[in-house]
């Protein structure tokens, strides 16, 4: 396995009495598509929120490429190469699809401060925006306001905005939630392709076990803020503790692959 991109050291978080992250020591390697799973309330979203700066870290440390980023504000983490998408669609509603994707491109290339030059003359930015639109398959909706998109297209845009920040490490929080099967396959193919390109390392939070087991090189199972199991899909499937936690409906989901 490659170099660890991001490591955490005794990362902890509490909401009142509820512990959503307990002394987490994790590391994410470059090029390994990792999935984070766990029952509701396991601390998946909290972990992403902590790593990307959405939530202030209460205790512990985060390092990215050897540099400590525990207290770094969000936009600086994004500049370093950590970005995310959101579970609930969280784009710029009144802006067009192209404008949505253009904002991270502008910010990354340092062109967003220019108050006089017309946007239409930023050809390099426009071209790059096109590339990202193609990657998520939205070039046809270029000039549609985000509010007018279908739910599936909005999800694609959500991922597109995150991709346009050209992150080294990208967290996708339930990217396929609420998508129909066709859209889902399209998005997953995209993600797989992008992961193969190797510029971006993906970390995905998912509920859908089909997605998780088909996509990941590594799976982290969280439960009540702690790592229950961490390994390859085969290791996770074989783990007794995971079976225990996933009693009930989810078991069939999780172990369907064995039966097939």
């Amino acid at each position: 396995m490659g170099e660890p991109l991001l490591t955490t050291e005794k990362l902890s978080n509490h909401f009142g009495m509820v512990c959503t992250a307990r002394d987490l020591d994790l590391s994410f390697e470059q090029g390994v598509l990792t999935s984070i799973i766990g029952p509701n309330g396991a601390g998946k979203s909290t972990l992403i929120n902590l790593l990307t700066g959405h939530l202030p870290v209460q205790a512990g440390k985060i390092r990215f490429q050897g540099r400590e980023i525990t207290r770094l504000p969000i936009h600086k983490r994004v500049r370093l190469g950590i970005c995310r998408s959101f579970q609930v669609v969280n784009v710029f509603p009144e802006l067009t699809v192209a404008q949505n994707v253009m904002i991270p491109v502008l910010a990354r290339t340092g062109r967003a401060w220019n108050p006089i030059r017309s946007l239409s003359r930023e050809t390099a930015v426009t071209r790059e925006t096109e590339v990202f639109l193609e990657k998520v398959g939205l070039q046809g909706e270029r000039d549609t306001p985000a509010t007018a998109l279908s739910h599936g297209d909005l999800r694609l845009l959500e991922v597109g905005v995150a991709l346009a920040a050209a992150p080294t490490l990208l967290f996708l929080d339930e990217p396929t939630a609420g998508m129909n099967p066709v859209e889902r396959v399209r998005l997953l193919d995209n993600i797989r392709e992008l992961a193969c390109e190797g510029r971006t390392t993906f970390v995905v939070v998912e509920h859908d076990m089909d997605v998780v087991f088909s996509l990941s090189g590594r799976i982290i199972v969280l439960h009540r803020g702690e790592v229950l199991c961490d390994g390859t899909p085969a290791q996770v499937r074989a783990d007794a503790k995971v079976r225990e936690v996933y009693l009930g409906d989810d078991v069939s989901d999780l172990f369907r692959y064995e039966e097939e």
Partner: peptide
Amino acid sequence: SPFGLALAGIRENARRSEFAGV
């Protein structure tokens, strides 16, 4: 301008703007 678009982004969704690197 690009600056104007960044401002519009902040109006539309400040949190997402931060995650866009603004």
